[in-house]
Design a protein around this nucleic acid. Sequence first.
DNA 1: TTTCTTCTTTAAAATGATTCTAATCTGTTG
DNA 2: CAACAGATTAGAATCATTTTAAAGAAGAAA
Lengths: 138, 138
Amino acid sequence: MDSSVRPYSQVYDTLRNVGLRPTRQRLGLARLLFDNGNRHVTAEQLHAEAANANLRVSLATIYNTLNQFTGAGLMREVVVEPGRSYFDTNTSDHHHFFHEDTAELQDIPGDAISVSAVPEPPAGTRVKRVDIIVRIKG
Amino acid sequence: MDSSVRPYSQVYDTLRNVGLRPTRQRLGLARLLFDNGNRHVTAEQLHAEAANANLRVSLATIYNTLNQFTGAGLMREVVVEPGRSYFDTNTSDHHHFFHEDTAELQDIPGDAISVSAVPEPPAGTRVKRVDIIVRIKG
DNA sequence: TTTCTTCTTTAAAATGATTCTAATCTGTTG
DNA sequence: CAACAGATTAGAATCATTTTAAAGAAGAAA
Ligand SMILES: [Mn+2]
Ligand SMILES: [Mn+2]
Ligand SMILES: [Zn+2]
Ligand SMILES: [Zn+2]
């Protein structure tokens, strides 16, 4: 588990497990995303971060990768504002504060909040997910 | 209260009250929006509906009007999908089912669902609104 | 009602996020 | 290594929304 000795091995295996080739770009992005705790990033943010980390990746690849990671269940998409999407490395059951001033997301652990008595979904439908967004301002 | 006698008077007063000139376009859109129970519409949907009702309004005016009505507190914006916004004529405290198949919103009355123990917002912030989206599929 | 001012509407262009295209490159497997 | 499938990328395209700036309509004053 010494990341200085096997720097890429964990994400490498993760990528293999979900059927994605461990390319230089995906490995680099996976490290940025998963090696630093839970993250909520937009494509542009991640692109800037990659550039900053000397990882050359096109914006198209950023989008491809975020969508692939999300499709593979490694991340999830959070929609709070019209116009742009956030991608969340925390795939466990949880909810969010959204800081309207700074446009930042912050986790609310799943057990710190809960919905009482969710009404029956309309006949013929089933609940896929319940999203709670607590919008806050300075 | 006979709408065939005073067809526009209610929305007319509403517009005056919020400081918006009662123009032909705003009056027509307000009738489409408010005279038929609660609605959840996208700009494109309302534009099509207006055309269908023989009301000539540009798409730019649709956007202007939806944003002005929202700013005036006559409607609110609901964000559930990346890429487009829904505008809701129901301004009371309530939440939503979102049908992922049909991309339609359906109200959940405020008293039919509630959040237990919303955690304290981070220091220096206050809660502006809590949005609950119950995502459902056929 | 005429005039004056301010607000509104609109076509068209601009913007911004995201996706697509199609050419080039790279990882994997034999 | 050879061959192929899959991945990356620059740039174009798309789509929702906003902006621009010119023309039109509403309200106030006279
Ligand atoms: Mn997506
Ligand atoms: Mn808006
Ligand atoms: Zn999260
Ligand atoms: Zn609603």
